[in-house]
Nucleic acid binder design. Structure first.
Lengths: 109, 109
DNA sequence: TGCAGCCATGTCATATATGACATATACTAA
DNA sequence: TTAGTATATGTCATATATGACATGGCTGCA
């Protein structure tokens, strides 16, 4: 179980341990993981809202299906950069993306 | 003159050409550049607010002075990732950072 | 039974970002 | 002047992220 999955469970209300530092997550690491999870979740929600498959989004991004899958899984090999580019490719504006980052639960569209 | 500097001038009100696509910036590229500029500006503002030199911040980030300088210059060799890590290292929360992304002008603290 | 579309996951060669270093400029104080 | 501090900028070896590919699971449909 890696940190990302760990954090995702918690974000969905599982309250593993004391929410934050179950495994040695520094405060700064948790902030980054939190952002990553929000972005990756929003990516999936929006991709589906657009009726696109991972393959279709990958084409827009000049990337590959496997990478899109990893993006949505908040894989540790995926940068925040790439997630931001993904959201932008789905029509997200800076203001949109700001809302995603600020939101506690990844709401729709 | 690269795209970043181009965009920064414009953000400060220079209105180079027709603001946006003076050089062939796609809409998606401008969104990303916009975010980068807001983050880099916020980084400088906050670093100074904390009374830190670039060297001091670099130490916190386990990076180097030159890289911090490039971060604040929105250099093309700097990722959004690194900028986000920089802001987090200065105490920025996801919500804080969201405000930075949404803001038109990089306000303080 | 296929078979096709969609997604997950692992591997790998290469592209890109990064820290470190050198060096330059600007400003201040002695 | 010289010295010290802060910042800017270019280069480079290496670390990391990326696209591509292979493969497997799952669902629905012929």
């Amino acid at each position: 179980m890696n940190k990302a999955k760990q954090k995702r469970l918690e974000a969905r209300g599982w309250r593993v341990g004391t929410t934050s530092d179950f495994l040695g997550l520094s405060e700064e690491e948790t902030a980054l993981v939190k952002m990553k999870l929000r972005l990756s979740h929003a990516l999936r929600v929006r991709r589906e809202a657009h009726g696109l498959s991972q393959v279709a989004l990958a084409k827009r991004l000049q990337s590959s299906q496997s990478r899109v899958a990893k993006m949505e899984a908040a894989d540790h090999t995926v940068s925040l950069d790439l997630l931001l580019r993904g959201l932008v490719a789905l029509g997200g504006t800076p203001r949109d993306i700001a809302r995603v980052l600020a939101r506690k639960s990844g709401v729709a569209a």
